[in-house]
Design a protein around this nucleic acid. Structure first.
Lengths: 141, 141
DNA sequence: GTTGAGAGTGAGAATCATTTTCGATAAGCT
DNA sequence: AGCTTATCGAAAATGATTCTCACTCTCAAC
């Protein structure tokens, strides 16, 4: 049944860190994320996950969110407004944030200043970067 | 004395929104920001500003931070660790965040996906963007 | 100089998100 | 079974920020 033992914890892209267990509670949180589109708050997620796992605790929800964040399956939106989370791809990507409806979309499109310019102008050695583009999404246009 | 009446509220780059008053309390907060290098928390700023304006309230400090944020003179760092703020230029710019010492530097260097690609791939109309580059700064290299 | 409207204020309470604590459970290993 | 460790839920604790409210200040109009 287990094609790749190491990957048993993956749930269509939502991955927990290696060495952690996929418990029923965590599964309930993963399912709740699957069932949600766009951004969500920790509390919203908790309430949704609780429908399928009534004894789920808020702390476990936060703990699971943190695990998912570690694997890059989740991104915490910190800017304007209340804190929120969005599901995202573990691979390199950026975010298109709609100022009208608040939806967040992943994009592979990427551009950054060259390392050469960074070194020359700032003596800075880049390791990673995050780009958020604000504007109007297709539906709100 | 006032070369440009409209600019009286500017304090070497730290600008309050038009129509707001530069009160002694706000001046104390601005001075405290001037006297600080790198990132600072709201509470640190409050305590420093309070030295020159002992009756200053924490709420006023937050209110002033928000005003400065509105004009782009200040950036709220939300990512890793405790919330903090950094002074920055009101003009368009991005941030170089040192993963070693936590310092934040402004840069004019900028690059984003083209509007053409955004439209074609996502139907997204970009209005603004924010880029944070993580890595190692000159001093920590 | 008085006045009135509205911006601005401090103190403390309230809110909100998140983390910690701790005793109880469950799972995995031997 | 017996031991070890991960995980859990509930509740308290924490930390940052915002709100409330009564009071003060500024400034233009009288």
């Amino acid at each position: 049944m287990t094609s790749t033992p190491d990957r048993e914890k993956e749930d269509r892209g939502l991955a927990l860190p290696a060495g952690t267990r996929l418990t029923p509670q965590r599964q309930a949180v993963l399912d709740a994320i699957e069932a949600t589109s766009g951004r969500f708050t920790a509390l919203e997620l908790f309430e949704r996950a609780r429908r399928s796992s009534p004894r789920l605790g808020l702390a476990t929800t936060y703990r699971t969110l943190e695990l998912l964040r570690q694997t890059g399956s989740l991104h915490a939106l910190s800017g304007e407004g209340r804190p929120a989370y969005v599901r995202c791809r573990p691979e390199h990507h950026h975010h298109l944030v709609c100022l009208s409806c608040g939806s967040v979309e992943d994009t592979e499109l990427c551009a950054t200043p060259s390392q050469r310019d960074l070194t020359r102008r700032h003596g800075f050695q880049a390791k990673s970067h995050e780009l958020e583009i604000y504007g109007t999404c297709r539906r709100c246009a």
